[in-house]
Design a protein around this nucleic acid. Structure first.
Lengths: 192, 192
DNA sequence: GGAAAATCTTAATCTATTTCAAGAAATGAT
DNA sequence: ATCATTTCTTGAAATAGATTAAGATTTTCC
């Protein structure tokens, strides 16, 4: 069975698996192909897996009180994504996960994950590290939202994530940064 | 050696330890007493432990670009707190941890934690659950900040956290909610 | 290729919140 | 008890960003 090289490289950054362990690990993962616009998860559904983005881009969002889509996270190549609250607490999600472009993912469902951690306990360490990195990034983002103006947020986003600007619609980036598309447009054109 | 009953009850909610395992676990924890105003961590220091708040209250904050204290988190009784970025990445923290009132904590330093997880592997599960809950709470908070006005945030905070209002200075709550003390005051007096 | 839909831009006006200033009330130190 | 310090309140003015409206541009669908 052929292992995914992106995922193998990703794993090597955090834990050491033998070739056999890596093959065993990846045998639990299933390919999922999404077309642009397809959903991985919709509000009301219960999330049952973690996903590794091999290639493509997805967005995580919920609908706010005014009916607007509020982006909370993206998933680019080599990112693990899931909806933690729904996955862990087994409750229906309020979050949608949708492909922004054609996307290939590897799916690790929770049952497989639990079997895996019995067979390869080091997998716990890998996912603890992923969880830690996810939390730290989330904290950093909160600090940014609390400390910077809309314009400053835009400037930081652009310099730290140049790969997004061509691939993601501008109204989606605006939402992620916590501002309206009109305001985002003014910032970009320097009328603010 | 006498175990702490608060902590024993806390652990029971998530994992099952034998009496011996619980005693072994708690033998790794050291008492830390803070007076109101004392620091557990200051910016520039590297965080080296996790802390269980037995009794009291602490706040986590950083200094923003304008020299203001920006509260990012509280720690009340029965909460585990740490500064994850500094602890995990072993870099100097930008976060302060300071007692808002006289506080008793149990300190689990990282060296003890690593020894502990070899002796009681279930401890990994306990701290993974704590990490997951922390992350989910952080996501919920981000969603609130993105979706609600200052007034709405105040109303939700008051109804969900009545225990804070007497114990924490109002300028500290205002900062946590992402607003100025003056605005917080206006909301409270219904001039907004 | 053309029409429909989606995305983006711009300007005027409005709202939410900050800033500044001043003073009141509460708390802490002596 | 008194004074100093900290916390809280209030109002006016300013600022950051949202809303609304309209139209331009780009992308998608047939």
């Amino acid at each position: 069975m052929k292992v995914n090289n992106n995922l193998s490289s990703y794993i090597k950054r955090y834990i050491e698996l033998t070739e056999e362990e890596n093959e065993l690990f990846q045998s639990f993962l299933k390919n999922t192909v999404l077309k642009k616009g397809d959903f991985l998860l919709k509000a009301g559904q219960t999330c049952t897996a973690k996903y590794f983005v091999v290639k493509g881009c997805v967005r995580l969002y919920y609908i706010d009180g005014k009916g607007n889509e509020q982006i909370i996270h993206f998933g680019l190549d080599n990112w693990w994504i899931t909806e933690y609250d729904s996955l862990i607490n087994k409750n229906p999600s309020n979050i949608y996960i949708q492909a922004i472009e054609d996307t290939l993912l590897l799916t690790l469902n929770q049952t497989s994950f639990e079997k895996l951690t019995l067979e390869i306990p080091k997998i716990n360490t890998l996912f603890r590290i992923i969880m830690e990195k996810t939390f730290i990034a989330s904290q950093r983002r909160l600090e940014y939202m609390l400390s910077y103006s809309g314009k400053e947020l835009y400037q930081k986003f652009v310099s730290q994530n140049p790969e997004f600007l061509q691939r993601v619609p501008q109204y989606v980036i605006a939402s992620y940064l916590g501002m309206t598309p009109e305001f985002y447009s003014k910032i970009r054109s320097n009328t603010i």
